[in-house]
Structures are given as structure tokens and as C-alpha cells.
Design a binder for these strands. Structure first.
Length: 511
RNA sequence: GGCCUCGUCGCCAAGUGGUAAGGCAACGGUUUGCAAAACCGUUAUUCCCCGGUUCGAAUCCGGGCGAGGCCUCCA
């Protein structure tokens, strides 16, 4: 099956048709940096990071841009509240955003343009729009005239005439039509001077939508292959971006509009405006970044995801079986799962559709499963792909049992499991999962002293076990010795440490 | 009022015309000194309801009922 991508513009899946050339250009709307990031802000980045990983695996080069909106009403207001400047606040919140991305293993973003660094380009585009008759200045502001754009509303199926019916649109006698939106906002007396720029229409700052149009074309060209963002940005933000850009350039703005579903808190979406946000920094106190990323990828990207502690706990539980396998793998092979080389895909030339990637639905072939690749080719169906990954894990565990990896593996068995585990490693790489071993750190598990003490305890308990197992059946010491070994295990469990007695020796872990 | 989604096992979730993936939970069994982990097996004749199209529908169409998003800032 060749790669199919759902297009918001046509409301259906379409064969992925990029522009000529090997590079895929992708633009995703980023945050307004006035508050620390909440989990909802990470949905898009995690999804599009996975999209990039998959496309890269197929052999495309992907250039991905996320913008940083560092000037806007909310920033001005918030900076005043905190008695700081807009640039200082923006810088701090941008750093927070970057930190969150890094923690969730979102590594593929190539450029983070800032709105304030592209004011000149915005003035140019606004000027061009005025010259072409799509925009008009009005008392220090500049507005886009929606009545001049014949296909305005095509992205969201909006009729400009009906926009008048909606009474929530900002009323302004400067606008010619109710649906007109600001390209440039004249400065108000109360606004700080670091948020004011000179322009042909007087001092002010850009409207919200224009920055994306300008930065996208500046960095990626007039036509994007993929434009992404949250579902809540469809209207008016993306509709207006599209109208501006296509009016200014006369070219198609984006081949594919992809919109991710929103994170919900109970039944309502999580958003600053609703006041039900969960900060990422807080969240990561309770759950690993991997758990969070896994949750975000476990459902289809266009569906809403409900955030809940229970859900995260459940996901964390399901990850355990992967970790158990990684440990088994390391015991058996002496090598870390995290260092495995993925199965390369470079035998598949650029643009070659995934249906030509053959072989491999099971563990017998050396390339990552056709089933997995088919799921990803079907509009990046990560939920189904994760299902395949679980099945693959099961097969590997089963193989591990057959090969007796935990007691006396033959060199053949070790070689076999090493070879087949590469498939799992490859799937994980495409989804951006299992990038680093889970920390034992919670209880000091990474500490050398703790590790030493644990080994001491395990050795002493091992002596007791050996003695108990060697004792005759009717020896009264036998149950007493076992009682001691069980007590040690029980007391450690109370501390959150699990002991596991295996043929080759006892292992321990936190959790 | 307009536009747009969604409703699949106790919970989460794939599947969008060919006879219900996967995870969590639960219950049997193997293994283990006992555990833990792992393995094997069981768990939706049925996909919110009612009609229709079809040889065939969870999937398409019509009508209900229910939940949500956008139309104002929002990832």
C-alpha cells in the first residue's frame, strides 16, 4: 500500500503527492510563548516528529519548521503582570518549550523561526497584498478583505457571508466585511515599545496569521508539502494563512493540511483558555517521558486523546513488558537493546511506495514488518503500528522461551535473537520510542553504592537459598531458611524493589 | 443557527464493503522451593438505536439518540 495521507482540504485520504525533488517540506504551527508548555502543546510535535521519522526511513529528506510566536496580546499582558519585558518572558518560555520537546524525544525540528525576527518580511507581504488589492489600510490597521478572495473558506467550508451571522466576531467599523482579519495592528498607547515596530501604516505589530505565511515561505518556499497543526487552528488561523499566502503568491500554499486531534481533560479539551492544563514539568514528576510519548502515539493522530492519570499508569504498565524483554536481551547477549543497529531502508529508492517494501511480516526476514509499514503508510496509523509492535514483542518473548535464553542459550540462539530483535529496534526508531533506558534513578538505582549493597544482599540471600534447596526434605531448617529468603524479598518489595530469581541468578529492579 | 468529528469487549484502541488487531484488567494452565517475569489458553455471533442499499455492512445511505471541536485566544 502506497503512502496515503488525509487532507483536511478534501476531507479524505489521498496518495502522498509531494513536490518534485527529494525533500519534503513540513511546517507546523508552534506555541505562543507566554506560559509554560502543557501536554496539549506536545501532541503535534510528537506526531509530526514521528511523521518525519517515518518519511526519513522511507528515504526522504524532510525539512521541518515550527514557529515561535513571541509577540502578541497575551505576551504583552503576561509580561506586564510579571513586571518583565516581552522579550525576556518569551525567551524564558521558549527555553521551557525546547526543554519539553527534548524530553519527549522530539528531535527532528530543523528551524524555529521567531515572529519578531521576520517583521520585515511580513511588512513586505502585507504591502504586496495591498498592491494586489486583497488588503486595505484603515486608521493604522491593515485588514485582509475576504470578499476579494473567491475561494476564501475552502479549508474549513466556511461561507464568508455567514460569518456575519456569528456575533462573536470582533466588531470594528474599520473592517469592510465582518470576516476581514488584521494583517497589521496599529499600536495602542498602553503597549510597551519593545512590542512596537515601524511600518508604512504607522507603528504597530503584525496580526497573528501573517507570521506563519511569511516564515513558511521564507524557509520552505511558497508551496509546502505538509502544513500541520492542532484541530483548533483550522479556523480562523489556517484558513487565513491559506488565504493570505495564496493571494500573495498565486500558488498553492500547502499540498497537505494535517490536523491533529486535541488532548482532552475529561470531556473538554485541555487549553489555557479553559484553565484545565497540566504542565509538562509537573507531569514528568509522575510519569516517564516515554510513557507520555507512548500515550500520544497509541491512538490515531486525528482522534482526540483523553488525558488521565489512570490512563498513563496503564500505559506505563504496558511498557514494562518491553523493558523486561530488553533486560532479557541484555542478559542473553551481553549487549544493550539501546545500541542495536536498525534495519536500514536504503535499498528503497526515494519515492518508492511502501507497498513495494516486501518480505518481513514475521520475524523470519531481516527487514521491518510489512504489516507495521502498512499501518504507517495508512495515514500514519501509529495506533495500529503499536499493536504490531506488541505482537512482535510477543513473538520475541516466545522465541526467548523456546531458545531458553535465560538459562543456557546456545551461540546460535544468541545470534538468532540478536538478528530478529533488530526489527523491534527499527519499529521503535520510527516511532521515536525506547531512545534511552528507563531510569532506575527513582530510588537511587543508578547509584554505585546502592548497586553494590543490592548485590551484597542478593549474594547473601543466594547463599541462604542454595542451602535451603540443598537441605533434605525433612530437615526442619529448610522451611526456616526459605522463610528468611522470602522475608528479604518481601521487605525489598515494600521499598519498591522487585527481586526475580532466574536460572542464571537473581536480578533486581525498581518498580 | 452554520461547519466538522466521533460513538467497537469492564477500560483504552485498530479495523471504513467480505465476515471483529493489539494493550490493560480478569480467569484457567506451564514454569518456579514459593514468588516475580515469561510462555500457553479462555474472554465481543457482534460493533449506540431504527430503517434502507447489497450476495454480503461495524464499515455505504436516511432518520433518531448521545459526546465533542470550530465559528473569539488556543497545539
Amino acid at each position: 500500500m502506497a503512502l496515503q495521507v488525509y487532507s483536511t482540504l478534501t476531507r479524505k485520504k489521498e496518495p502522498f503527492h509531494k513536490q518534485p525533488g527529494e525533500t519534503v517540506t513540513m511546517y507546523v504551527c508552534g506555541p505562543t510563548v507566554y506560559k509554560p508548555s502543557h501536554i496539549g502543546h506536545m501532541v503535534g510535535p510528537v506526531i509530526f516528529d514521528t511523521v518525519k521519522r517515518y518519511l526519513t526511513y522511507l528515504g526522504y529528506k524532510v525539512t521541518w519548521v515550527i514557529n515561535i510566536t513571541d509577540v502578541d496580546d497575551k505576551l504583552i499582558k503576561r509580561a506586564a503582570e510579571l513586571n518583565t519585558t516581552v522579550p525576556a518572558l518569551a525567551e524564558r518560555m521558549t527555553a521551557d518549550y525546547f526543554d519539553c520537546l527534548k524530553k519527549l524525544n522530539v528531535t527532528g525540528i530543523d528551524h524555529f523561526p521567531k515572529a519578531t525576527e521576520h517583521i520585515g518580511g511580513m511588512i513586505e507581504m502585507i504591502t504586496r497584498l495591498i498592491e494586489k488589492g486583497y488588503a486595505y489600510p484603515a486608521a493604522g490597521d491593515v485588514y485582509f478583505d475576504v470578499s476579494k478572495d473567491p475561494d476564501y473558506g475552502k479549508l474549513c467550508n466556511r461561507d464568508p457571508e455567514q460569518l456575519e451571522a456569528g456575533s462573536r466576531i470582533e466588531v470594528s467599523d474599520r473592517k469592510r466585511n465582518p470576516g476581514d482579519f488584521a494583517l497589521w495592528k496599529g499600536a495602542k498607547p498602553s503597549e510597551p515599545k519593545e512590542a512596537i515596530w515601524e511600518s508604512p501604516w504607522g507603528p504597530g505589530r503584525p496580526g497573528w496569521h501573517i507570521e506563519c505565511s511569511v516564515m513558511a515561505s521564507k524557509l520552505l518556499g511558497d508551496t509546502l508539502d505538509i502544513h500541520g497543526g492542532g484541530l483548533d487552528l483550522q479556523f480562523p488561523h489556517h484558513e487565513n494563512e491559506l488565504a493570505q499566502s495564496e493571494s500573495a503568491t498565486g500558488k498553492e500554499f500547502a499540498r497537505f493540511w494535517m490536523h491533529n486531534g486535541l488532548l482532552k481533560m475529561g470531556t473538554a479539551k485541555m487549553a489555557g483558555s479553559v484553565g484545565n492544563v497540566v504542565n509538562i514539568a509537573d507531569l514528568l514528576q509522575r510519569h516517564s517521558p516515554e510513557t507520555v510519548r507512548f500515550l500520544l502515539l497509541s491512538t490515531h493522530y486525528r482522534s482526540p486523546i483523553e488525558y488521565s492519570e489512570d490512563r498513563l499508569t496503564e500505559v506505563a504498565k504496558s511498557l514494562q513488558s518491553f523493558y523486561r524483554f530488553f533486560e532479557l536481551y541484555e542478559r542473553a547477549t551481553g549487549e544493550s537493546f539501546y545500541n542495536i543497529q536498525q534495519v536500514e531502508c536504503d535499498q528503497f529508492p526515494i519515492g518508492r511506495p511502501p507497498d513495494q517494501i516486501t518480505g518481513m511480516p514475521d520475524l523470519e526476514s531481516g527487514s521491518p514488518g510489512g504489516e507495521f509499514m502498512s499501518c504507517m503508510a495508512d495515514d500514519f496509523n501509529t495506533g495500529a503500528a503499536i499493536g504490531i509492535m506488541f505482537s512482535t514483542l510477543s513473538k520475541l518473548h516466545y522465541l526467548g522461551s523456546l531458545l531458553k535464553l535465560d538459562s543456557n542459550p546456545s551461540p546460535y540462539a544468541v545470534a538468532d535473537i540478536k538478528n530478529k530483535t533488530r526489527i523491534l529496534r527499527t519499529m521503535a526508531n520510527i516511532l521515536g520510542l525506547f531512545w534511552a533506558p528507563p531510569a532506575k534513578a527513582a530510588l537511587g538505582g543508578d547509584d554505585k553504592l546502592v548497586a553494590g549493597l543490592m548485590q551484597l544482599l542478593i549474594d547473601l540471600r543466594g547463599n541462604l537459598r542454595t542451602e535451603a534447596k540443598g537441605a533434605a526434605k525433612d530437615n526442619p531448617l529448610k522451611p526456616a531458611l526459605f522463610a528468611q529468603t522470602d522475608l528479604i524479598r518481601k521487605r525489598l518489595a515494600e521499598l519498591g524493589v522487585t527481586l526475580e530469581d532466574r536460572p542464571a541468578g537473581t536480578t533486581w529492579r525498581v518498580g
